Simulated assay, not measured.
Amino acid sequence: MKYVRVEPLQDLFGYMHDPQPYLEILPQLAAQMPLGAAEYASAPGHYDFGSTKCVKDLTFGWTSLQDASGALSLKIYFEPNEWKHESGLLIEYADVQKFQIETNHADHSLKKMGSMQLDEVLPSSYGLTHEFAFTGGTLMVTAKDLDATWTDKIPR
């Protein structure tokens, strides 16, 4: 991530989280983002660790990638942490150009991604890039725009 900092602590028992550099430049970035991405990144509570609408501690649930009408659409559902969130988060991406998952497991298997630490949405020449940092890896999406909904219903 370019602005949001997520770094393992030296004792290997947790992470240091610092979204402040991103939050400081977010008004300028949001003006360059597609509308859905700007609303998502700027939503109240997004980086407030005590908020039920904070992405920290969500877990990767499932994904669905479809080729419809000549463009790829992607849905990703993040499951809630039972101690923090009232519902899960469904993000739907329009006209996907890139979808990449990397794990940091030694055998490079797609084991549990772990809990989300933080994310970062940036404007791009295509529309947006959206990067997620998990305890077990990273996820990156490049798309035209996104629509995010906090929901307890799990559509597929």
Rank of each mutant, 00 (worst) to 15 (best):
D11P: 02
D11R: 04
L12N: 14
L12T: 10
F13K: 12
G14P: 01
G14E: 08
G14D: 06
Y15V: 14
Y15G: 04
Y15E: 07
M16Y: 15
M16A: 13
M16I: 08
M16F: 15
P21D: 13
Y22I: 10
L23H: 06
I25M: 11
L26D: 01
Q28W: 05
A31W: 03
Q32H: 09
P34G: 01
P34W: 04
P34Y: 03
P34C: 03
L35G: 00
L35R: 14
G36R: 03
A37P: 06
E39W: 04
Y40C: 11
Y40P: 00
Y40D: 10
S42I: 06
A43L: 12
G50T: 09
S51D: 04
K53W: 09
V55Q: 06
V55C: 08
K56F: 01
K56A: 09
L58M: 10
T59P: 01
F60P: 00
G61K: 07
W62T: 09
T63K: 02
S64V: 14
S64Q: 13
S64G: 10
S64R: 14
L65T: 12
L65Y: 03
A68G: 08
A68Y: 08
G70P: 08
G70Q: 11
L72T: 14
S73V: 05
L74S: 03
K75Y: 00
I76P: 01
I76E: 00
I76R: 01
F78A: 00
F78P: 00
E79A: 11
E79I: 00
P80L: 07
P80C: 10
P80R: 12
N81Q: 12
W83K: 15
K84A: 13
K84H: 14
E86D: 11
E86V: 03
G88H: 07
L90A: 11
I91C: 04
Y93C: 06
Y93S: 02
A94C: 02
V96D: 02
V96S: 05
K98R: 12
Q100A: 11
E102Q: 12
E102H: 10
T103P: 00
T103W: 04
T103Q: 05
N104V: 11
N104Y: 15
H105E: 09
A106S: 14
A106M: 12
D107L: 10
S109Q: 10
